[in-house]
Structure formats: C-alpha cells, structure tokens
C-alpha cells in the first residue's frame, strides 16, 4: 500500500510538472491547430526561450517570470519571420492544407530543427546553465510545495485561459478559429488568410518561447542546447492527447502526463516504467479519439 503522504507530495509535484508540460506544449498546440503545421522545431524554440530567460537574468537581472513577456515578444517576431520565411510559400492561396503541404512543412521544420540545435551547440557550447531563483518551499502540512513550481503552474493556467479567451471573445480570435475550420469560408467572410495564418504562427511562437522561459523556473539548472529533444516529444504527446487547437487540451494533456509520471512511482513503479505508461496513453487516444480527449 502506498504511503498517503508520499502520494500527496507526488500529486502536488505531478500537478506542477503537468502545468510546466502544458505551457511548453501550448505554442505547438496553437500552430498545429490553426495552420495544421506540425512544427518539428518546437523543442528548439523552447530551448531558445529558456536561453532568452537565462541571458535576460545574466545581463539584466530579470527573474524568469519577468522574462516571460520579453521572450513572448521575441517569439512573436520570430514567428512572423518563420511564417513568411518557411510557411507562406507553401500555404498561400490554399483553401485546404493538403497532405503534400503537411509533408513539405514537416520536412522544412525538421531541417530548421537540425540547424537551430547545431547552431545552438556551436554558440552555447553545450554547457548546462540555469537561473537560481525562488528556491523556497511552502510547507502545507506534510507536503512541501516549491514556490517556483507554483508560480509556473499559476502562469501556465493564466496563459492558457487568456489564449482561450482571446480565441473565443475577440474578433481576431474568431477569425483565427474560422481559418482553422474552413479557409475558403473564412475568405468569403472577408478574412485575409495570410494575415491570420501569420498572426496565429506568431502567437504560437510567442507562447512557445514564453514556455521556455517558465521552464527555467522549474529547472534551476540543466538548460542545454539539446534540451528541446527532451521536451519536444512530450509536447507532441500532450497536443495529441488534448486535441490540436483545443486550448484547454494543453492543460489536460500536460496534467495527464505530469501526474502519471510523478504519482506512479509512489506505488512502487519505476520512473522509467511510469514515463513509458504516460506515453502509452497515446495509443488508445489515437485509436479511439483521434481528435483528442476533449470534445
């Protein structure tokens, strides 16, 4: 029988880890859901967001939470460049995103991923860096709650809530949703598809790099040029679990993974098996709920 105190402690950590997973996957969710582009370079942009927060801390003394809006703004700029540099030529003038376009963008972003990770290795030299910030722990009875993780969890939920409100309550958000559902019909309603796809991509990149900044709170050390290879697969699983384009799907997918990975070991299951189980969830979802768990 598992120790209840340990289960509670692991549940708290799992919830916070789930929120970290959610926020780093959220940008991928937006881009995939709206433009139907599977950004294979997603992990590298998480890495760049983390390095952005690190250098803002190193040179300007920013704590990682203050770096989030700065990273997001940089990410939006990068997103526009990414769209017009890589995606526009393939997506422009199309009323539906064909399988051929998906393959072209997949390969293009894969190439970008290789370029970014190798350039980062050349520049950052592979040294593990991190930001020492907010290491205090809040004692809630027998359970210790790391404040850094709590801040990330709150920020993560706030970011997802704001993006949901933006998409459902604003004209631009509704235009993005319309584009994601039917490009041809959206055009008939006077929506400029290029503008909308570029904005959605930019928002997705802003969210991704903001997620990278928040990751540095959860990981006070261990930011390396290769960190994207750890978090990109997790992000893909989360988006598939929650359903591409479903804002709260990021949180649902993230929490599912985080809780499974952190709570199963309390029942005597090794960490390696817990991670495998979390990824195995993907198979029934793909078989029985291809649009994700959320309806």
């Amino acid at each position: 029988m598992a120790d209840l105190g340990l289960v509670a402690a692991d549940l708290v950590v799992g919830l916070m880890l789930g929120c970290v997973f959610a926020v780093i996957a959220h940008g991928l969710n937006v881009i995939w859901g709206v433009t139907k582009v599977v950004n294979v370079a997603h992990g590298e942009f998480i890495m760049l967001g983390a390095y952005g927060a690190y250098y803002l801390n190193l040179y300007l003394g920013f704590n990682p939470l203050l770096s989030v809006p700065v990273d997001a703004a940089i990410g939006i700029g990068v997103g526009f460049l990414f769209y017009f540099g890589l995606l526009h030529r393939e997506l422009r003038g199309k009323e539906t995103i064909t399988r051929e376009s998906e393959m072209v963008t997949l390969v293009a972003t894969f190439g970008l991923s290789l370029i970014l990770s190798n350039v980062a290795l050349a520049i950052f030299k592979g040294d593990a860096v991190g930001i020492r910030w907010a290491p205090e722990t809040l004692a809630l009875g027998p359970v210790g709650v790391p404040l850094g993780g709590l801040y990330v969890a709150i920020s993560s939920v706030a970011i997802i809530a704001i993006s949901d409100l933006f998409l459902s309550r604003t004209y631009l958000g509704n235009a993005i949703r319309a584009y994601s559902q039917d490009i041809g019909a959206a055009q008939l309603m006077g929506i400029n598809p290029t503008r909308i796809a570029a904005i959605a991509t930019a928002i997705g990149f802003g969210l991704t790099m903001a997620g990278g900044a928040l990751l540095t709170v959860w990981l006070p050390v261990g930011i390396t040029p290769l960190i994207g290879s750890t978090y990109a697969p997790i992000s893909f699983v989360i988006v598939v679990l929650g359903g591409p384009g479903k804002m709260w799907g990021s949180l649902l997918g993230g929490l599912t993974l985080g809780i499974l990975i952190d709570v199963l070991p309390a029942f005597g299951i090794s960490t390696s098996i817990a991670v495998a189980v979390a990824f195995l969830i993907l198979i029934p979802v793909l078989l029985f709920a291809r649009e994700g768990i959320l309806r």
């Binding site: 340990l6 402690a9 692991d10 799992g14 959860w218 952190d262 309390a266």
Partner: peptide, 16 residues
Amino acid sequence: TYPNKGTTDFHTQLNA
C-alpha cells in the same frame, strides 16, 4: 534508478 537520458525532474525520487 532513473533514466540516464533526458531525466531533469527528480522531485518524485527525492520525495520517496
């Protein structure tokens, strides 16, 4: 034990 590759979060093991 923990997976050598990609493990960055040790909260669960330390809690245990």
